[in-house]
Design a binder for these strands. Structure first.
Lengths: 184, 184
DNA sequence: CCGGACGTTGACTGACCGTTCAATCGCGCG
DNA sequence: CGCGCGATTGAACGGTCAGTCAACGTCCGG
């Protein structure tokens, strides 16, 4: 019943959504009260999955930098699996006046990143003088921008590219947070 | 004549823009052929300024990490000076089907960052094994996300905050790119 | 075979908004 | 003073689109 959503951007009209789903647009209003609710549902459902995977990484044992790598992987792999979905999430999520619940959910994502960073600081792996909250935004921003680049077709796509991006982001971010980096 | 633009987001209606400018909405069409052209003009004009300042930094003498710090400063200071403008740039620039010229201009911005990074690699200040192009996206993404956080009111604003953000971003980014980071 | 409950449809509506344009203003020049 | 022309206005238009609703199909239980 939500199959229709995982394809396509949500800048589209109600008619498009319905067509994608193979039903008349009127039918949408039996399941959702408004177009916005469709988007919200899709977003929430998928973001929740992402949060679950984030939580799993956070709760796993291991050093903070490995966890951070795990978080990066999750986001990039999601892209590889379902570009259209990522398009929606990245483009619509950072958007304007959305419901408080969505903001909360997004905040939870940042919270995970922030806590991992703080853990790293406590362990002495990451520099303690950095503002963990800001750093989490930096990390997320880096990820989102690369995803956006793919979505917009302005960065080359492909499996190797995803792997390369994963390496680059992890290197920069972990290196930047790290208390010490060995010269190569 | 463009005073009207530096206030407010461009998700607004033509009427709003005109009202902001203190003229009747019909008058807009003596100066611009369409609403989109207004946006494009505002964007181009301001982005050009930003590019000029970027270029100045790039051409200045000095180590790459200092230049990078300079670029970060430019973007964050722009925010401090004119939040509304940044709102427009950040929110509308990453957007979908815009003119090729705009894409080119944006690309030029990334180009500057990329070249500074490459310079750093050539100088041995930055790790050479990183993909400079991807890294430039990472850097820009980090900046944009923090700006977005301010725009959305989800990160605390204020002069000290801007300064703190500048430090955090520079630390993470330069540290991450750096060949060696000294333990603190 | 009937009835009604539920799923489904798509023509229709009402509002919004970008764009047009005929009418008006006001300023400078002869 | 008055003519003319660019600047300016805002009512009207047309298209688009989210949301409504009355009608129709289908399926099942009695």
């Amino acid at each position: 019943m939500r199959v229709f959503a995982r394809r396509g951007f949500h800048t589209s009209r109600v008619g498009d959504i319905a067509e994608e789903a193979g039903v008349a647009h009127g039918l949408l209003y039996h399941y959702f009260t408004s177009k916005d609710e469709v988007l919200e549902t899709v977003f929430r459902e998928n973001w929740r999955q992402l949060l679950d995977r984030f939580a799993a990484v956070e709760e796993s044992s291991g050093p903070a930098d490995e966890k951070l790598r795990g978080l990066v992987k999750i986001l990039l792999r999601t892209w590889a699996n379902d570009p259209d979905l990522v398009t929606v999430m990245v483009r619509e999520v950072g958007r304007s006046p959305h419901l408080a619940s969505q903001v909360d959910d997004i905040g939870r994502g940042f919270g995970v990143i922030q806590r991992v960073i703080e853990q790293g600081q406590a362990e002495g792996v990451f520099r303690a003088e950095l503002d963990a909250r800001l750093a989490s935004w930096v990390v997320y921003g880096a990820l989102e921008e690369v995803l956006t680049g793919w979505v917009m077709g302005r960065l080359p796509d492909g499996d190797e590219e995803v792997a390369r991006a994963e390496r680059t982001i992890v290197d920069v971010v972990c290196g930047g947070l790290a208390r010490t980096t060995l010269a190569v």
